[in-house]
Each structure stands twice: as C-alpha cells, then as structure tokens.
Amino acid sequence: MLEIADRKFDSRLFTGTGKFSSVDMMVDALAASDSQLVTVALKRVDVASSTDEILTSLDPNRFDLLPNTSGVRTAKEAVFAAELAREAMQTNWIKLEIHPDPKYLLPDPIETLIAAEELAKKGFVVLPYIHADPVLCKRLEEVGTAAVMPIGSPIGTNKGLKTEDFLEIIIEQSSVPVVVDAGIGAPSHAARAMEMGADAVLVNTAIAVSDDPVAMARAFKLAVEAGRMAFEAKLAGVRERASASSPLTSFLD
C-alpha cells in the first residue's frame, strides 16, 4: 500500500479534473479510475462559493483533494495560492506547480525549491511538479517535500516517458514516493512507469480527452495495477542478445 505523509492509498493512480467535456463525465471517469487522490486547479474553482460545481461533485468519502497552484509564476505567488487553497478546500496537501512558461508549462526548478521549503515549514504536505532532475529531487526531499512528481514528458503531450533514464535514477535514489506526472498518454506508459518502480502516476489529459473517458479511466486503473504487480514480482532481466555459447573465460577453469 502506498503511503504519502499521513495517508495510505489503495490506488496508485492519481487523476485530475481538467479538460473533461462536462462535470458529469468527470465524475463518471474518476469513479471508473478508482483513484483516491484528485488534483483540482485553484484557478478553476470559485473559492468564495460553497456551491462550486467541481468541488461539490467530488464525494469527500471517495476522493481526497489535491489542490494545485497552476497559473502562478513565482514562489511568492505559489505560497499565497497554497494558503488560499488550504482555506478553500480544507486540506494542507498541495501540488506545487510553478510554470512561468505558459507554452510548454515546464516547471521552474529554482522557484519550486524556494516555495517547497517555505510550504513544508508552514506544515503543508508538498508534492512538487518538477523536471525529471535527480539532483533537484534530492534537494526537494531535503527541504521536506512528501513526494516528488517528476515529468514523463511535457504536460498534456501524451508522449510518454521521454525522461525514462532520469526517472530510473530518481526512483533508485529517492527516499520519498515518486509520482510520475505529466506526459503519460497511454495505459502502456503508466504500466511502464509502475514496472520501473514509480510509486504512483498522475494522469489527466489522456483520460479526459479520449473518446470514452470512462473506459480509458478503467484502462489506466488496470495498467497501473498490472505494472505495480510486475514490479513487485520482479521483472526478469532483459538481454540485448543471447548469451555467448563459448565462454571467454573457460580457460581459467
């Protein structure tokens, strides 16, 4: 079972609430995913209203909310947004997203590290969205983040695990859970991340934008479960070519 900070999760598939064709479709797809942690953009919800359509549609017994700071460009803005989200959504969990580049939405490592440290000190459970940078992951761990969320490829691109070699290093070195976030476009990508030993994956676009989000959500659920099962069963090693039939060192025997 996956543990992050004080919580345990049966499901290793985290999901998002954006890009769905309707709130009803979102609710159905999230239910089919069996996900227990759902990220919500602060900018999309009406924090002043108790009747916000997205928030009221998510059953609190089923889903934990993971507010995100999408839209901020600096550490200062991120800290402010996190505090607002904590107030509005009644959770100290925060998906820290600082992407000053609105084109590829790539995270700013410097601002993210600064904000992560401050938010951790303020008692937040910080899950930072970051590049697949092994050193940055260790630095974030040191300032107290509850997990790290390296990208597979640029967000929304569905390109899969373009950062695979670096994800392997991150998974090998990390003392906190590694959640592969962004770029996972197909269940096979999610399965691969789990086989590699990622603790969880976060998938949004690939589910929301598919022709049948409910079926796709279920496909991801199964892929994540299969990948995790394979990881725990330990994959047999892969060999580039067959073993040599005449050993080179037999003369030593």
Binding site: F20, S21, S22, K43, K76, E77
Partner: peptide, 19 residues
C-alpha cells in the same frame, strides 16, 4: 456548446494568482 460535447468554462483564473 454543451451539445457539441464541450464544457463552457466561466472561471479559469483567480485574482489571487497575481502578485
């Protein structure tokens, strides 16, 4: 918009996100 399979979004920014 809904009939075309799209969700009309009235809020996609928050004034608190601006420094």
């Amino acid at each position: 918009i809904k009939q075309q399979g799209y969700d009309p979004v009235f809020k996609d920014w928050d004034s608190s996100l601006q420094e």
